[in-house]
């Protein structure tokens, strides 16, 4: 099986599903690129290149460049979804969601329930997340907790190319609004990805590494970091299990609880400020439903309660980094 990048895996999923289903359209800023310009149209394919070649294959009626108008982009996607299309809207950086959040949480997320189950809103909002890109306070956030707390949204955080493809296809075949969060630092990472279409159901965590002494639950771009630390502490005889929930809503509580039942120890790795994070959310769930399994306090490794700083040294310290993750693992292991 060929190795493919996270970027290519998402592109594959969109391309094959667009071939299969003519109702899927893409809209956003520079999803094609070059509209109205003197040179070539379609040469951008979204600023991180995820949509490369799609304009060429599907043309301007299905790969639609919009003005810089996030409220209208997301609102139009919701309206189109409600009336028979399957739009894939792009919010280039998730930070821009502030401009259009009403259309997400008051509109798209609520139609199905608020209209008594009569409405379907099959739409996807793709957005890039994460620090580590030296992009500063307004281009480096993750915001996944914000979406996860909204009833009516499904929230997907792929951590590798294989999952990225299967989760995207699942999203494109579902009938609900999906927030699909792409980690910008993972775009070039590669794993084996089948050419054919496959679905990964939402709400099914992946046990990324098996272990028996301690459970690490990590989200999106934090999964590779948790795995690296698991390897490192393994050399000292600590057997760490790493769980990648893949979707934060729905959340696979069972897999997490089963793992903690086995290990008795839990560290959460979440690239988010600590309050109201996925880390604090999962910690609360385990404290509630898995209390008896715990042999040590739960520890979380998150960002500090600050905006994302620009200077590389500060940003590296801001993110949950291997040093801090490892320290948390060792602290939990030491507890008796």
């Amino acid at each position: 099986m060929a190795k493919k990048s996270y970027r290519t895996a998402i592109n594959d999923a969109l391309r094959s599903e667009m071939r299969r289903n003519p109702d899927i359209i893409i809209l956003g800023e520079d999803v094609a690129g070059g509209q109205g310009a003197t040179g070539d149209v379609g040469v951008v394919g979204s600023v991180f290149g995820v949509l490369g070649g799609l304009y060429k294959e599907f043309g301007p009626t299905r790969v639609i460049d919009t003005p810089i108008s996030e409220s209208a982009i997301v609102g139009a996607a919701a309206g189109a979804a409600l009336t028979g299309l399957r739009p894939v809207a792009e919010i280039m950086f998730v930070d821009f969601v502030g401009v259009c959040f009403d259309q997400i949480y008051n509109q798209a997320a609520k139609f199905r329930y608020m209209f008594g189950g009569k409405a379907k809103t099959p739409m996807i909002i793709r957005a890039t997340i994460g620090a580590g890109f030296r992009a500063g306070a307004q281009h480096s956030q993750s915001m996944h907790p914000l979406f996860t707390m909204v009833p009516g949204l499904k929230v997907v955080m792929p951590s590798n190319a294989y999952d990225a493809k299967g989760l995207m296809i699942e999203a494109l075949r579902g009938d609900d609004p999906v927030i699909y969060l792409e980690a910008k630092t993972l775009y070039d990472t590669e794993v084996e990805v089948p050419d054919e279409a496959y679905r990964i159901p939402f709400g099914e965590a992946r046990v990324a590494r098996e272990g028996k002494d301690i459970t690490l639950v990590a989200f999106g771009p934090m999964v590779p970091r948790a795995l690296a630390v698991a390897e490192a502490v393994g050399k000292d005889g600590i057997s760490a299990e790493v769980i990648d929930p893949r979707t934060t809503s729905p959340l696979d509580e069972d897999t997490i609880l089963e793992s903690v039942e086995k290990t008795g120890r839990l560290v959460l790795v979440d690239e988010s400020p600590p309050r109201c994070s996925l880390a604090s959310d999962v910690a609360a769930i385990v404290a509630d439903k898995g209390f008896k399994s715990l042999k040590a306090p739960i520890k979380s490794v998150t960002c500090p309660h600050t905006p994302v700083p620009f200077a590389p040294v500060l940003e590296d310290e801001y993110m949950p980094n291997p040093r801090r993750i490892e320290a948390a693992v060792r602290a939990v292991m030491k507890f008796d």
Binding site: E29, D30, G34, G36, A37, V44, V47, P67, I68
Partner: peptide, 13 residues
């Protein structure tokens, strides 16, 4: 004349 890679002639209705 441009917002990113899109011409104003296209995007400014």
């Amino acid at each position: 004349g441009y917002g990113e890679h899109t011409a104003a002639s296209y995007s400014v209705g």
